[in-house]
């Protein structure tokens, strides 16, 4: 009987969380598109999310490009298909590696920070204080973070694409002895508009996921320091899992026609 009770309780908690998240999400969308807009907060979030995440995204996409060039070369030499390395690097980086790596890195950096900041504001009653000062926290705190992440993630991924492809170029030209101009022309030849656009669309969706998860977990955090810690952990874990699931779904949507 206890076991059935437990299952029932877990199921009800799950439904409650889903309902709460749906209400949170719809409120967020509503406040993202209705005035007043806090442009100063949006710009400061864009700088925080875009500019300050650039080093970590650049570093991860650079090494992703380096390693994919090495691995594809190691595989393709068996079939004398070294010429396809440039194409594999370009496709992997633009379609998958740059958006996913950037998404996961930003989830770790920004998602956790959003959850911790909002969580601290919740437990120290700063969110309640906003209400008493006639300021809606959804407009003042959450909408700027969502706009910042959705607008800056595609830009970060675009820069990540360039750096990742450049990583592949470095390995192929300086380590594997490829001809630089033929490598670049191979890359250009296979590069399609859709590769870049699909990666940037994915990035915008990942930005939405990261900001929603960070804000949701922070906004509803309870307890003291432990609650804030759990909120940050949950924000990163849920955002990372959702990024990987959504990435598969978007890939199927874009390329499996």
């Amino acid at each position: 009987m206890d076991f059935i009770n437990l299952i029932g309780r877990v199921f009800l908690n799950f439904l409650e969380s889903m309902g709460r998240f749906l209400i949170f999400g719809s409120k967020t969308f509503y406040h993202c598109f209705t005035p007043p807009y806090y442009f100063r907060s949006i710009i400061s979030q864009m700088i925080e999310i875009g500019f300050y995440s650039l080093p970590v995204v650049a570093l991860t996409t650079l090494f992703a490009g380096l390693v994919i060039a090495l691995q594809s070369y190691a595989g393709f030499t068996k079939f004398s298909a070294e010429g396809a390395v440039a194409m594999v690097v370009e496709l992997s980086v633009t379609r998958e590696l740059a958006p996913v790596m950037a998404g996961l890195m930003v989830a770790g950096r920004i998602g956790a920070a959003m959850a911790a900041e909002l969580g601290t504001m919740r437990v120290t009653e700063q969110i309640d204080a906003l209400y008493t000062l006639s300021t809606n926290p959804f407009k003042y705190l959450i909408a700027p973070r969502v706009w910042g992440a959705v607008l800056m993630m595609p830009l970060l991924v675009f820069i990540g694409d360039i750096i990742g492809i450049y990583g592949g170029y470095l390995v192929c030209v300086y380590k594997l002895g490829f001809n630089p101009s033929s490598y670049i022309s191979n890359t250009w030849e296979y590069l399609q508009y859709m590769d870049i656009v699909s990666g940037m669309v994915k990035a915008a969706v990942f930005g939405l996921i990261i900001s929603l998860m960070g804000c949701y977990n922070g906004y509803y955090s309870r307890g003291g320091a432990q609650g804030v810690g759990s909120a940050a952990t949950n924000a990163v874990v849920t955002a990372s899992i959702l990024i990987l699931i959504t990435n598969y779904m978007l890939t199927e949507l874009f390329f499996m026609k």
Binding site: E125, Q126, D128, A129, T132, L133
Partner: peptide
């Protein structure tokens, strides 16, 4: 609420 004010227990100042 624009006609009211509140002093919170921990002051709740924005960091």
């Amino acid at each position: 609420n624009s006609h009211s004010g509140m002093l919170f227990q921990g002051a709740a100042l924005f960091d």
